[in-house]
Design a protein around this nucleic acid. Structure first.
Length: 569
RNA sequence: GCGCCUGUAGCUCAGUGGAUUAGAGCAUCUGACUACGGAUCAGAAGGCCGGGGGUUCGAAUCCUCUCAGGCGCUCCA
């Protein structure tokens, strides 16, 4: 569809140029030609509002301009356009030739599982960091959304020719995991009978901590009590991180998300890179000391306040290892890095970007996109706060479990992924668990999957009815003359540009919507027209090719979303 | 107070650089041929696109003000 646009763009530009040369249009040069998608077949295959755009500079009514342009397009010279018409206030509606439709079909069949891909990315190395949940508890549904979106974004970027990788940053150092160790320690000692102990401020109250502490007691009984407090907490911290991280990995694995790289904050700290960062900043005179702490001149970068990088207790604030981590990403050769963060990290964005700038990296090297929150809502519509520290949250595992009870294990992940992927990143998602589970059967993913299964079923029937596999060259595509067939192919032709725009704009949800629309054209077609018709086998062969195309696009699209394309349901 | 996000049908959401008649799904109502799978299809109903003002021949879309909700502005991460 993109090629067709640039070709038609050229034709119309030439027509405008000819009109200018003939003194019929009082403008100097032909502008770029915009296209608008057509909502109904009555508006042709594509349309351009160019005449409306020129109305002002040409000081002429748009319809008149459209008529002039129309006059200078030589339809007989351009085989890809079958007809032009002027509509409404001055739109030029363009009808594409049948030959173009046949080419599209042949193209889909030829490219098969690669249909939709492109090479725009020229194999540039891009890294997407997402989820990066603290290893202090199970993954919740917020991480689930991030996981689904990030995973799909990487698929999309790879599909358009980038070399994109998934990375998870493990915050296995600093105050949070320190308090994790302390929390496990309290539960451990409580399990062994100590009273009057309380989880410290900012510690973790979740049931899973108690459960894990009991496991430690079961394995090692009270042997750890012999250790000094600090040693024991440190040990429990290590054990806790390993345990919870392992759990997170299992959940992600179940959810179909496989990270290429797991980076450790502790490793970054141990590497000495944070010290390098500080030295670089000091040399560049970005730092100063005040009240016993070391501050970074964030105001030099336009922020409204400076921020502490080394606390008065001489520990780094989290900015330092984080900046070091990003420098490390750069050293690993990524030409671009995208961080997907939650909205609670809003304040972090400008600062992190400023740190990266201070390190001398280009402005657009680091892109930070916010994936909006997921709120838990009860059946009365009241929000419920999720907090790992307070032990209130809804885990991704539980979601998949409950969905599995409703739609079966086979589709639970598909339903969950689709649920997250169908929303734009910036929607604030109110998640009603009860509703999500009871309505799981209504999830639109089934509509798409069913369309795919239907295609497979038709081929199954075809085999039973002794149809043979005919290569597309032997099939008379001219027998595909129904308007519904026309619409299906035109839709399928959009697939590559939908992938491209979806990847470039980081708007993953366009893929589910596109697939839903495609399925929405296929089901009515199926009901209206028989594919396999023994009284017209030539046409049946042509329609089988069409079904093959639709199945291919559906499968390719679902594959990008990490959702299964079942052959039967 | 400042910054970011959101507000579209009863509900959940689409709406690509303004543009031909604002669209789906769910829910509601009415229908579907002994035919390739009824997880489907055909149809009905449902809207001052939060509100005011502005730019434009034309605004859900751009600008401005305003209302409502969420999030962020820590020597927490």
């Amino acid at each position: 569809m993109d090629e067709i646009k640039s070709e038609i763009s050229k034709i119309i530009k030439n027509a405008i140029q000819d009109a200018i040369n003939a003194n019929e249009l009082p403008i100097t040069t032909p502008p770029d030609i915009p296209f608008s998608p057509t909502k109904t077949p009555d508006h042709g295959d594509i349309a351009t509002p160019i005449a409306l755009g020129l109305a002002k500079s040409a000081k002429m009514p748009p319809r008149t301009i459209a008529e002039i342009i129309h006059k200078y397009v030589n339809l007989e010279k351009h085989a890809i356009i079958s007809d032009l018409e002027i509509a409404g206030p001055g739109f030029i509606n363009i009808y594409l030739s049948n030959e173009w439709f046949y080419d599209t079909i042949r193209n889909i069949i030829a490219e098969r599982q690669d249909y939709g891909k492109s090479n725009i990315g020229s194999k540039k190395k891009i890294q997407i960091e997402f989820v990066s949940a603290n290893p202090t508890g199970p993954l919740n549904i917020v991480s689930g959304r991030a996981a689904a979106v990030g995973d799909t974004l990487v698929n999309l970027l790879n599909a358009v020719g980038y070399d994109a990788v998934r990375e998870f940053y493990v915050n296995d150092a600093g105050g949070q995991v320190e308090r994790l160790g302390q929390s496990i320690d309290i539960r451990y000692r409580q399990t062994l009978g100590e009273n009057n102990l309380e989880i410290p401020e900012g510690g973790y109250n979740g049931e899973y901590i108690t459960k894990f502490a009991k496991e430690i007691v079961a394995d090692d009984s009270d042997t750890h009590l012999k250790l000094l407090d600090d040693e024991r907490i440190s040990l429990f911290k290590e054990k806790g991180i390993a345990h919870l991280l392992g759990q997170q990995k299992n959940t992600l694995d179940r959810f179909g998300v496989n990270f290429d790289v797991w980076s450790s904050e502790q490793a970054i700290r141990d590497s000495g890179k944070p010290d390098e960062i500080i030295n670089i900043f000091r040399e560049k005179n970005y730092l100063y000391d005040n009240e016993g702490a070391t501050w970074f001149k964030m105001t030099d970068f336009g922020d409204d306040k400076d921020c502490v990088v080394i606390r008065s207790n001489s520990e780094y604030t989290y900015f330092v290892p984080d900046a070091a981590y990003h420098l490390d990403k750069h050293d690993r050769g990524f030409t671009k890095v995208i961080d997907l963060l939650g909205p609670d990290h809003q304040g972090h964005i400008t600062r992190l970007k400023n740190f990266v700038k201070a390190l001398g990296l280009p402005d657009d090297w680091l892109e930070i996109d916010i994936i909006q929150q997921v709120n838990l809502v009860d059946s009365e519509g009241n929000r419920q706060d999720m907090s790992k520290r307070q032990g209130q949250f809804y885990t991704l595992d539980l979601l998949i479990d409950e969905l599995a009870e409703s739609v079966g294990e086979r589709y639970a992940v598909d339903v969950a992924r689709y649920f997250f992927l169908m929303r734009a990143n910036n929607t604030h998602l109110d998640f009603n668990i009860e509703l999500a589970v009871t309505q799981a059967n209504e999830n639109p993913v089934f509509y798409i999957q069913y369309a795919h299964a239907r295609c497979c079923s038709i081929f199954q029937q075809a085999r039973e009815q002794q149809y043979r596999i005919k290569p597309v060259e032997e099939v008379n595509l001219e027998l595909l003359g129904e308007p519904e067939e026309h619409a299906l192919i035109r839709k399928a032709a959009d697939f590559p540009s939908v992938i491209l725009s979806s990847a470039e704009d980081r708007e993953v949800h366009r893929i589910p919507h596109f697939l839903h629309e495609l399925a929405g054209l296929f089901h009515p077609y199926y009901n209206l027209h028989r594919v396999l018709d023994s009284s017209n086998t030539d046409r049946s062969y042509a329609r089988l090719i069409l079904v093959d195309c639709i199945q291919t696009v559906l499968a390719n699209g679902l594959n990008l979303l990490g959702i299964s394309a079942p052959e039967s349901m």
